[in-house]
């Protein structure tokens, strides 16, 4: 268990446009171990979904990974040719998207889709594949799986459909599951069910999960570690309890304070002034400096790289040892 399942090193994703090159993901590094859940949070435009798409090689041209490396089990995958990458995606990486309807073909029954995916990646007979598919549907909590497997996607409710997508993602026993906002389209009462299923299955199968979401509540419940993204960069990454109860980066602090809680009686929420810069106008130095109440000279000139701070890394000059000394 020495090599992590996924390791991303200094990944940068750029989009050339006529107004210049946009950097959607900027020098992001992290890794996920087997059986671990890494939550990736950030607001819209922070680059979290782009990070996910870059890892699985699904960035729309002209966007591309302009520098950095992505390793799956120590094997470099960002340079693989499209055809090979497609096989890796199905076999070793499972994907769950926000809208279950985009992952399911409305013209085929769930059985057809599951069996086909299983047989593409595993050497099983049609009957064995079907047996495996029923087992998977059972695992994700679809009642009466052996009968419902022959239904079409539209015959399932939203929550059930998302369960089918999870089953589809787990078809080939992937090592890594990338879930992009898997619960966002669902009602609160159904969200909890889906999170339960994901958590249980990944623990059983020992898959690593990269969970991309804007919902801190979901992260708090399921993730082991959390990476907070801001303007395409990692602001803070570390154990989820640490980050939530004792945020280090000023952005994370503001983010946590701005979430209304069922428990607190605060009259006003903490708010971060302003909004995230557009990709066309990211300020020099730390991208958070215009909104940061702690910003000092250095923040406007020099860009902070994630610096070690207890068990985590924080991209903020406040945590620079040398700064503390001076």
């Amino acid at each position: 268990m020495s090599t992590p399942v996924l390791s991303v090193e200094g990944m940068t994703v750029q989009f050339p446009t006529r107004r210049g090159i946009l950097t959607a993901v900027d020098d992001v590094s992290f890794s996920i171990k087997a059986g671990e859940v890494l939550g990736v949070v950030g607001e819209s435009g922070a680059g979290k979904s782009m990070t996910g798409s870059a890892i699985i090689g699904l960035i729309e041209p002209p966007g591309r990974i302009s520098s950095g490396q992505v390793f799956l089990h120590g094997e470099r995958i960002d340079t693989l040719p499209a055809e090979k990458m497609r096989r890796v995606r199905g076999r070793k990486i499972g994907m769950i998207f926000q809208d279950p309807l985009t992952s399911l073909n409305p013209l085929y029954t769930v059985a057809e889709q599951l069996v086909e995916t299983i047989r593409t990646h595993l050497p099983l007979s049609a009957a064995d594949a079907r047996k495996r598919a029923i087992g998977l549907l059972d695992d994700v909590g679809i009642p009466d799986a052996s009968r419902r497997i022959d239904d079409y996607p539209h015959q399932f409710s939203g929550g059930m459909r998302q369960r089918v997508v999870i089953a589809l993602a787990l078809c080939a026993d992937p090592d890594l599951v990338i879930a992009d906002e898997p619960t966002t389209a669902l009602d609160v009462s159904v969200q909890a069910q889906i999170i339960d299923v994901m958590k249980k299955l990944c623990a059983e199968k020992g898959a690593a999960i990269m969970l991309i979401t804007h919902d801190m509540g979901v992260i708090a419940e399921i993730a082991d570690r959390v990476a907070v993204m801001y303007a395409g960069r990692l602001a803070e990454i570390g154990p989820v309890r640490k980050v939530i109860s004792d945020a280090a980066h000023p952005y994370t602090k503001g983010l946590m304070g701005s979430i209304p809680s069922l428990l607190s009686d605060a009259e006003r929420l903490t708010q971060i002034p302003g909004s995230m810069p557009r990709l066309t106008a990211i300020p020099q130095g730390c991208p958070f400096n215009p909104r940061c109440s702690y910003a000092f000279d250095r923040c406007y000139i020099e860009r902070p790289d994630p610096l070690p701070h207890d068990e985590r890394r924080v991209a903020c000059w406040l945590y620079d040892k040398e700064e503390a000394l001076s």
């Binding site: 059930m160 969200q191 909890a192 069910q193 339960d196 708090a220 419940e221 309890r241 069922l262």
Partner: peptide
């Protein structure tokens, strides 16, 4: 049920009670 299903940051690690069924 609704209240139990709300994820809350204070409850880190404590699982919320999943609700039975759907609307």
């Amino acid at each position: 049920m609704l209240l139990d299903a709300v994820p809350d940051l204070g409850m880190t690690g404590k699982p919320r009670k999943p609700v039975e069924g759907e609307i």
